[in-house]
């Protein structure tokens, strides 16, 4: 009978025992120290054969953990306020901040638009001489070298060489 139990323990360690038999065997192990010792030995051998690092707990490992949990102190803390209240407060603060930020940036954007408009107006006012200068520069280039003239529709890029002349 015990030999059959040991054989079942071996099959359990090798994960070859079906579930009903495993449950029944573990119930038997719980009340039989000899089976517990045998199971611990088989587990150790199995881990050694598989090359795994052996980490076999003491037989009373579970009992010790259970005792530790029972001796754990109980802390009677004040109960936290309702999360709903916290969410409402957070939303109110966030909304206020959002309004403040939107208001601030709206004012800033307005100023920027005004500045941009002023800059554009200034640039437009200053573009005139710039355009005038560009037009004059282009005309001068055309007169300086016909190569520039014939290429003016494609901008002022030159498709040819430098202007020069035949010196006598």
């Amino acid at each position: 009978m015990q030999a059959q139990q040991f054989e079942k323990l071996s099959l359990l360690v090798d994960d070859q025992l079906d579930k009903p038999q495993s449950v029944q065997l573990l119930k038997s192990v719980r009340h039989d120290p000899a089976l517990q010792a045998k199971l611990q030995r088989y587990a150790l051998i199995s881990q050694a054969l598989k090359g795994e690092q052996a980490a076999v707990a003491d037989l009373d490992f579970a009992d010790k953990v259970k005792q530790q949990l029972k001796s754990e102190p109980v802390y009677l803390m004040q109960r936290k306020k309702s999360d709903d209240q916290f969410k409402k407060t957070s939303l109110a603060v966030a909304a206020s901040l959002l309004l403040a930020v939107v208001g601030f940036y709206a004012g800033k954007m307005h100023n920027q638009v005004q500045t941009l408009a002023q800059a554009t107006t200034t640039a437009a006012a200053e573009q005139s001489p710039a355009e005038q200068m560009n037009a004059q520069f282009k005309e001068y280039l055309q007169a300086h070298d016909n190569v520039w003239y014939v290429n003016n529709n494609a901008g002022v890029k030159s498709y040819a060489r430098l202007a020069s002349y035949q010196s006598r």
Partner: peptide, 28 residues
């Protein structure tokens, strides 16, 4: 000098007081 833009059929004609090569000009 004349320049014909083939896509727009625009033609530009001009002249310059002296000859100028498109490649390079060198002193004689």
């Amino acid at each position: 000098i004349s320049c014909l833009y083939k896509e727009s059929q625009q033609k530009v004609e001009t002249h310059h007081p002296i000859d100028r090569s498109f490649i390079v000009n060198l002193p004689l």
